[in-house]
């Protein structure tokens, strides 16, 4: 009943967390694909501002274009209309300053754990590279697996390798596309805790795509709720609970239920 009021429904681009300079901005971004000589609108009118060091989740049902939006932000796709700006510059292609983390499928199977994590560091002298790689192997808890190949690792470990590979090049922005979607639920919880720990230590700007409402509310500073066909921003919800979050607190449940009803689902089965 009280859900929509308490979730502070916001219509247009709500400014990011107060006090943060703008890192990424989308201006009226629209995307359309050509399929069988018909244009299929995928995204419409996306206006969003993300602050420096902010953790933003893009949440929506599958097919709502959230992954497409993320790929466009990373520079893999060009928006059909509008513009995406990072640090005030229009994004024109992929860039090592902002790294995209795929599901664990993005780990290179022909390289060892070390080789994968050091992949973006080829310009560094060998000694420095080894130190950086060692540091991040430790950070994601993969000591002892330096020489292992990806097919010898579990899904969760591969996901850690990808996160470490991204962190190792010290990017400003990280894009994570349902990074924990293929993991079992226990590993997924552990990975969320680790991601938050790393984020709090390194303060990267993170854009995180998910279709899991709990995941979004547990992790994000703000949750961007999207609707499907064509993808639009339906609502932006600020999660004003300090970390570590108590996931049984009334405020948490209130925010989660607010988003649930926003998507059109009752919070009871």
């Amino acid at each position: 009943m009280s859900s929509s009021a308490s979730a502070r429904a916001v219509t247009a681009a709500e400014p990011p967390m107060p006090g943060l300079p703008i890192k990424l901005r989308t201006e009226n971004v629209g995307m359309a694909f050509l399929r069988d000589d018909k244009t299929l609108p995928v995204l419409e009118n996306i206006n969003l501002e993300v602050g420096n060091g902010e953790f933003v989740c893009l949440l929506g049902p599958s097919g709502c274009g959230k992954s497409t939006l993320l790929s466009a932000m990373a520079g893999f796709l060009r928006p059909t209309s509008g513009a995406i700006l990072i640090d005030g510059e229009i994004v024109r292609g992929a860039d090592p300053r902002r790294i995209f983390v795929f599901q664990e499928r993005g780990v290179f199977p022909w390289l060892t754990v070390e080789g994968n994590i050091g992949f973006g560091l080829r310009k560094l002298p060998a000694k420095e590279r080894a130190e950086r790689v060692g540091h991040y192997i430790q950070m994601v808890g993969l000591e002892g697996f330096e020489k292992s190949y990806p097919h010898e690792l579990s899904g969760g470990m591969k996901q850690r390798v990808e996160v470490a590979r991204a962190l190792a090049v010290n990017p400003d922005v990280m894009f994570l596309d349902e990074p924990f979607g293929a993991l079992d639920s226990i590993t997924r919880m552990v990975m969320r805790i680790e991601l938050l720990r790393i984020w709090q230590a390194e303060r990267k700007t993170i854009l995180f795509v998910t279709h899991d409402i709990d995941e979004a509310v547990q992790l994000a500073d703000r949750v961007v709720v999207m609707s499907a066909r064509p993808g639009r921003i339906q609502q932006i919800v600020s999660i004003d609970i300090p970390h570590p979050r108590d996931i049984s607190s009334p405020r948490y449940l209130e925010l989660r239920d607010g988003i649930l009803s926003q998507i059109g689902l009752a919070h009871r089965l």
């Binding site: 992929a94 995209f100 993005g106």
Partner: peptide, 10 residues
């Protein structure tokens, strides 16, 4: 996905 990852690292 591999090509994108590669080009992402410059």
């Amino acid at each position: 996905i591999y090509r994108r990852a590669g080009s992402n690292f410059g």
